[in-house]
């Protein structure tokens, strides 16, 4: 296996020549594809592929107890699992900080944008529908976040609500689609050397000193941001990343 140090030296050298491993432009995506309804048992599912990165989102609906302070609203919950098959660094065991961060960043955008009308998930006194979205990473070749957003949104868009009777779900009879109000997509930037690039491959991520994810839910509307990594970003850098994220939104929406 090629060590991260070797990858980093190679990528940083390319950056100085103003080019990338796959000779893409700094703000170009790799090829994207999203397969919808990949599994039948769950209420919604999708697999998003960005280059060689593959993320599956599975959506299950369950009867749930509402939170005490919001008794008439459904609940929504995200989890992410980095399968050991996806990358040699991933090990089995309790979720580490990376998978927790990924799930929470996707959760933040979709929740903030009020994608799902939670009031419509109210069933009866003390009973609501819970939307459980699990992100399963099976091939990690960089930019898991954007792939996870695409897979989650596609799963939400294709999800069907089962019939509800006597406090139970009749899963064989699926009726209405899940009420989804708007689409959220994200753009994840990495600072490599002194350049900012979009949709990093894995070798670019290990060479990166900082990451910013920006999620958008309208032509001029942002709904989540996350900065991680040790690098600092200037105000001007943030502004140009916001411009890019808003401009790329249309391109990404095609896949949902």
């Amino acid at each position: 296996m090629i060590t991260n140090e070797v990858k980093e030296a190679f990528v940083l050298d390319l950056m100085k020549k103003n080019t990338r491993v796959d000779s893409r432009g700094m703000l170009d995506y790799r090829q994207i594809s999203v397969q919808k309804e990949v599994y039948e048992n769950c209420e919604g599912s999708a697999m998003a592929q960005i280059g060689d990165t593959k993320v599956i989102a599975g959506l299950k609906l369950d009867v749930a107890t509402p939170f005490g302070d919001r008794p008439t609203q459904g609940v929504i919950m995200f989890n992410a699992e980095f399968s050991p098959v996806a990358h040699p660094d991933f090990t089995a065991g309790p979720p580490d900080e990376r998978s927790i961060e990924l799930a929470r960043v996707v959760d933040r955008g979709i929740r903030s944008a009020e994608c799902i009308d939670l009031d419509k998930l109210y069933m009866e006194e003390g009973k609501v529908l819970g939307v459980f979205i699990d992100l399963f990473i099976i091939d990690h070749n960089g930019n898991l976040t954007d792939a996870a957003y695409l897979a989650s949104m596609a799963a939400l868009r294709t999800a069907k609500m089962p019939k509800y009777e006597d406090g139970k779900l009749i899963r064989e009879e699926r009726t209405a689609p899940l009420p989804v109000a708007r689409d959220v997509v994200s753009c994840t930037f990495e600072k490599v050397g002194d350049k900012i690039l979009l949709d990093a491959r894995e070798e670019e991520e290990v060479s990166s000193s900082g990451r910013v994810t920006l999620a958008t839910c309208g032509d001029d509307l942002l709904c989540a941001s996350q900065k991680s990594g040790r690098a600092g970003f200037s105000r001007a850098e943030f502004e140009s990343m916001i411009d890019t994220a808003l401009a790329k939104r249309k391109e990404l929406l095609k896949y949902i």
Binding site: R111, D220, S225, K227, G232, E239
Partner: peptide, 22 residues
């Protein structure tokens, strides 16, 4: 340097609101 070391956001904001917020 006034570099941004952490910036998280939830809720919905326009670009102008984010920049004014910074």
């Amino acid at each position: 340097t006034w570099d941004i070391l952490l910036l998280q956001m939830d809720g919905m904001l326009t670009k102008k609101e984010v920049m004014d917020g910074i």
